[in-house]
Amino acid sequence: MPPVAVAAAQIATLPAGRDTDMLLEVIDLYKAFGGVVATNHVSLEVREGEVHAVIGPNGAGKTTLVSQLTGELRPDGGRVRLAGRTITRMPTHRRARLGVARSFQITSVVNNLSVLENVLLAVQAHAGHNFRFWRPALRCRDLVDAAHASLQRVGLGELADRSAADLSHGEHRQLEIAMATATQPRLLLLDEPMAGMGREETVRMVDILNTIRGGPGILLIEHDMDAVFALADRISVLVNGAVIACDTPDAIRNNAQVKAAYLGED
């Protein structure tokens, strides 16, 4: 066989995960709590700039999956790779330094600080070298400007000086997005960003996410089907910890198995 053909054959036999634009690869991930299997040999991938949605009924193991991607939980088996680099057992803060950012299903902001300070922490985390003990943080122009820009992007520019504790639920979720994007992540893990939101707030959040898309790869976990079908390039369906389907929104909409397991319930 001529050398070129050998190379071609090798490429053909390589796993799909070796594509150069592959950002996140989850390979055969497994996690059990006692007898309950929360993540059952899950494999999925997020390409650069892609919005990949994960849907599934309550208790399907969506948040458990995200927690293993961020490093808050250790998987029992399988691998997680970010841009070709294995990060399965890397601690949370180091993954974050590599560009993994998340928003939380249950709003998680720092309530004893101002809105601006919350985002400033995210900017600082990205900038590194924070062992500065003397100069006031609010006087570091470049950091403060970046934080303001991030707040403007999610429409919270006016509320920068308010205490984070005083924000409404929808504003908290917007702040979450501002913090997650302020670190200039390569991979954004959004855990139900629309949870508990009214119709109007959901529409605003879809708009905000649409302005972000195309930048970082996004893994979107969401219950709101209108939002999912409006945003996702691809959808994986998770039921009882296992992926039962992964396809384009149109194909998922017409997938009989998915309808039976999930969409039919609505």
Binding site: E72, H93, R95, V109, L121, A122, A125, T183
Partner: peptide, 9 residues
């Protein structure tokens, strides 16, 4: 926990 997920040790 939030600060850690932002990448701060």
């Amino acid at each position: 926990a939030r600060l850690q997920s932002l990448g701060l040790p």
